[in-house]
Each structure stands twice: as C-alpha cells, then as structure tokens.
C-alpha cells in the first residue's frame, strides 16, 4: 500500500502566495522516509496535508491509488511537535488512549507507558511522557502510515531515542510506513531508509 503525494500545492487563502508548490514523492509500506527542509519551508503544513488535516489546493494524496477517506478513522495519522496541545487537558490519560481504540495492558510496556500514568491528568506529565501517549494513540488507531512532525524536537536526547525506538519497532512489527519530518540530519540518517530534501527536490 504505497502513499503518494502527487503535484501537491497549497496556499492558506486565495490571493496569498503558495506555501508548497508541486511536491511529489512516494513511500511504500514498511519504509521510513525522512523529509528534510529548512525552517519556514512549510514542513508542518505538508505534514497536515498528508494526514488529511488540510486539503491541498491542487494535486492529490493517494493511499494505495485512492484518495484519503474523508470520514472514519484515517489510515494516515499525524503526531505533532507539541504533545501538550494534542491532548485534551481535562481528560485523564487513560481516556486519551481509549479515544482511538481498545486499550490492552500488555501493549503499554511496548509503548513505554507506565500504568500509573493512565490515571493522571496531562499537566502532571512531562512533554516526553505525553508524546508517548500521542504515539500510542496513533498506533492504537490501526494506522498504516504515521506522519511524525518533528516529534522529538522539544525533547532531550534520551527521551528522543526512547520514543523513536518505540515508533520504529512498532512500525517494523506492523509493516507501517513512517514519514519523519525533521530538521536534524543526524536523526534523519539514523532512522530513515531514504532522506528527501524538499528544497532541492532530491533524495540524499
């Protein structure tokens, strides 16, 4: 099941300049692709387009040759840079996980989540711990592709390594595709099979 971006262009409003222009790439199931671009290039916008949060002005995103479904659970899930914004502050974390699927206790350890955290509120956990919940939530939904938008930029290197080891091992287990948006070349080389430079439009 390949995921393709075909000739994607995007602008926020009519009359404004294009944020993204004619982006093309393709990723296969089980592959890890790193998207590398300088600041201000529209990486977050691209990530949102790929996960269906925004609709492109022209071009299309095809999963297995068909456009992403409008309704129902999206097979492409986005994990954002700011976990604290992506989690409802009034929910206990157990509910956060249950939002996307049935929670089985044996899965917790694979996600690096301590059982005691489930009864807490988001403000009682650190960013790294919350990010694990965002990862777990995306995985529990049964996604086929994960878009990771700078998911470890705000975290320390040990937590970064912990989170990526969870993401990568689950991806291998489920033959998922990962698109990792990052500005860190060392990280991109370490986790990805291929690195695509959005600015130069070439694989490195």
């Amino acid at each position: 099941m390949p995921l393709e971006a075909k000739n994607l262009s995007f602008r926020y409003e009519r009359g404004l300049p294009l944020v993204l222009e004619n982006i093309d790439f393709k990723i296969e199931a089980g592959e890890v692709l790193a998207l590398f671009a300088p600041s201000g290039y529209g990486k977050t916008t691209l990530a949102k387009l790929l996960a269906g949060y925004l609709r492109p002005c022209s071009g299309e995103i095809l999963l297995n040759g068909a456009p992403l479904p409008e309704k129902g659970v999206c097979p492409v899930q986005l994990i954002s840079q700011h976990p604290e914004k992506a989690i409802n502050p009034r929910w206990r974390l157990k509910k956060v996980l249950e939002e996307s699927g049935e929670l089985r206790e044996d899965m917790l350890s694979a996600f690096g989540i301590e059982k005691a955290w489930l009864e807490r509120f988001p403000r009682e956990l650190s960013g790294g711990e919350l990010q694990r919940f965002c990862v777990a939530r995306a995985l529990l939904s049964g996604a086929e592709y994960l878009i990771c938008d700078e998911i470890s930029t705000m975290l320390d290197v040990i937590t970064q390594a912990q989170i990526w080891s969870v993401v990568l091992s689950e991806a291998r287990k489920r033959n998922m595709g990962i698109i990792a948006v990052t500005h860190n070349m060392h990280l991109a080389r370490r986790i990805a099979h291929r690195v695509f430079d959005l600015e130069k439009r070439e694989y490195i």
């Binding site: 301590e114 009682e124 650190s126 711990e129 320390d156 290197v157 040990i158 937590t159 970064q160 390594a161 912990q162 990526w164 080891s165 860190n184 060392h186 990280l187 080389r189 370490r190 986790i191």
Partner: peptide, 21 residues
Amino acid sequence: KALWRALPQNGFEPIEGFQPY
C-alpha cells in the same frame, strides 16, 4: 554518558526508565 550515547550520531541508545517526579 547516557546522554552522549543517546545522540543519533553516537549510537542512539536510550537508557531505560524515566526521570523521577
């Protein structure tokens, strides 16, 4: 040392566990 080893260019090895609250 653990911090150094967890860098992507130096092994990318996480250590177990979490910082205490």
